[in-house]
């Protein structure tokens, strides 16, 4: 049952992204920014948490999940440290994702020679 929820919710988020690419002139970069920002706003308003509780990785792995991590991390740090938490929380909560992107990016760039 868990797996089914993860599959359906994660899949539906991707379907929305695909529909945006197919039906509008927006590019993948637009979709990336749109989804992360939407995820952040929805999480800030407390609307994304129920989806995470229901679908787990189905909601945290796709792009809005990154926004969710940004928002929840910021809110946690604000609770803990007050005002400075606004600046530390988002990056702390997403540090593993960002570092992985940097490391794998560096790795790929050193192994392959991009020509495009």
């Amino acid at each position: 049952m868990n797996y089914l929820a993860v599959f359906v919710v994660g899949g539906l988020i991707c379907v929305i992204g695909q529909l945006i690419l197919d039906l509008t002139p927006l590019t993948p970069a637009h979709v990336l920014v749109l989804f992360v920002v939407l995820g952040t706003i929805l999480s800030g308003l407390g609307l994304y948490q129920p989806l995470v509780d229901f679908a787990g990785a189905g909601a945290t792995v796709p792009l809005p999940g990154f926004g969710y991590a940004l928002a929840t991390g910021t809110m946690e740090d604000v609770d803990k440290y007050g005002f400075p938490g606004i600046f530390s929380g988002g990056l702390r909560a997403t540090a593993s994702g960002i570092t992985a992107a940097v490391i794998f990016g560096l790795l790929m760039a050193s192994v392959f020679n991009p020509k495009g």
């Binding site: 690419l21 197919d22 590019t27 993948p28 991009p114 020509k115 495009g116």
Partner: peptide, 19 residues
């Protein structure tokens, strides 16, 4: 194809879907 994509559209490695 690839020089035109790079200049006018997106790097081909980005894998952007074509309409």
């Amino acid at each position: 194809h690839n020089t035109a994509e790079r200049q006018y559209r997106f790097p081909t490695e980005l894998g952007v879907q074509r309409p």
